[in-house]
Design a protein around this nucleic acid. Sequence first.
DNA 1: GCATAGTATGTGGTCAGACCACATAGATCA
DNA 2: TGATCTATGTGGTCTGACCACATACTATGC
Lengths: 279, 279
Amino acid sequence: MTADQRAWRIVLETIERDLLSGALKPGDRLPGERALAAELGVGRSSVREALRVLEVLGLVRTNTGSGPLAGAMIVATPAGGMSQLMRLQVAATGFPVAAIVRTRLVLETAVVAELALAAKSAPLDEAQQLLDAMGSPALTPAEFLALDAAFHVALAEASANQVITAMMAGLRNSIEGYVLAGVARLPDWASSVDRLRAEHSGILAAIRVGDADLARTRMHDHIAGYYAETKLTDDHVDRDDDDLTAFARHPRRMPAQKTPLQQTPPQKTPDQKREPHHG
Amino acid sequence: MTADQRAWRIVLETIERDLLSGALKPGDRLPGERALAAELGVGRSSVREALRVLEVLGLVRTNTGSGPLAGAMIVATPAGGMSQLMRLQVAATGFPVAAIVRTRLVLETAVVAELALAAKSAPLDEAQQLLDAMGSPALTPAEFLALDAAFHVALAEASANQVITAMMAGLRNSIEGYVLAGVARLPDWASSVDRLRAEHSGILAAIRVGDADLARTRMHDHIAGYYAETKLTDDHVDRDDDDLTAFARHPRRMPAQKTPLQQTPPQKTPDQKREPHHG
DNA sequence: GCATAGTATGTGGTCAGACCACATAGATCA
DNA sequence: TGATCTATGTGGTCTGACCACATACTATGC
């Protein structure tokens, strides 16, 4: 199970081992790709494949150039990787949108309940600020929804659970496009904004008074309400998920906007490469 | 935001676009790496970096050789990617074990409560079979814990929520080593096995009679009990997570068992490459 | 004619070497 | 002293070349 005989796995597992042992920790910089390749006895391209995985998973940040900022540095930003993973799984219909929404309900109601039980110590400042910012009347739907998403993530952060925070960021991110598309199905955006803001206030209020059940109920209604109102979760949901609010089922989308990948490319016109920046 | 100027991103986003449009779906096969590279105007190595990411994320499965099984095929197996992500984040201390446990509590109590509310229709056969299998007296701790993990995942699967199922598989997988290490701290393994089995039975029974609150409570005690008993979550938990059961804090582990990656490799002995299978 | 062995083809997996763009550090020059 | 200019080293990318593997085709023997 160690090497799996694939070179890039060797690199990945070496780095994981060093992370577990403490020899590598956030803030540290990895050796250069060439040095790493020589050290592990693999090719540089294999090292790069492993680094690419680590980058997407939110474990490494790379910078070009030279100096203290250059190179690959260990970080621990799971939200990005979680978002990427969920977004692609949604795209591949591995994650139906309905399942995403149900999971949001589970996580977010738990978060607000927990915050309510620790009402005095929970740092709600950021959530409050975001709520205030949402009061601006000049916001476009996209801007408002971005603040909305940040508000929900801020609540998770207040609960000081990195796992749930990352999950919520990923969940929200994965269906961002669908949420935005749902705006078009709202009967009246302006009134919806007012309602959403009021619901957010109500959630914060319930947390502040320490009423866990009330916070839980309000968060549930808040999330379920929006998806019901926008009739979201109709696309990509052709599975047997017992439904949240009786989701409708619609046919799929139209084909691609650009020529999709041919499974058997007819010929081999190398096209004009997109401005190759090298010799 | 489209191309990000990095070649492998172009590949990733092209595939994601085709997934969203339906031009690509699970079961389909991607064009060959060389064809894909020519088609997108990037190098083959960039295509490979993108494919590597997709593979780790559980979106493609690659096979060498020729014929209908060869090449890269679209799949949708999020559990693998979730496990990889969480395992590495735990290793990098981005995910403290305590946060993992708290998240398990949230997800699993929600799952059993939901199952209890749909007691008649919930397919508990697999969970029951695993529970029966756990009765075998000849099981090693590792075997027993593997069945235990499968039992919990089976409950999530019964809830028909792919997202939670993947999350739970990832959570459990990420701390597998810690759970196993906890066995050594148990006063009496045999009696613990009996207790765990009894708790599992109790959870299933509560689900079957449709008592959501009871199922929730029993699951909570089951999970929290094991971690309290094994005094797990002591390592890698040096953050400010408000605790679940008053976790102790210990110093870190010892250094690496193998020579860790040097941040500045002193020289450049290319070592003997591990049996390079090429010219 | 038919079964078998041998070969051609195409796949992912890997490596090596070469550039580029970028960013710093040090040397050079006004 | 100050600004500029030149190594030097980084990740990012491309190209071309092999290998191991698995199939599909073809020639060969009966």
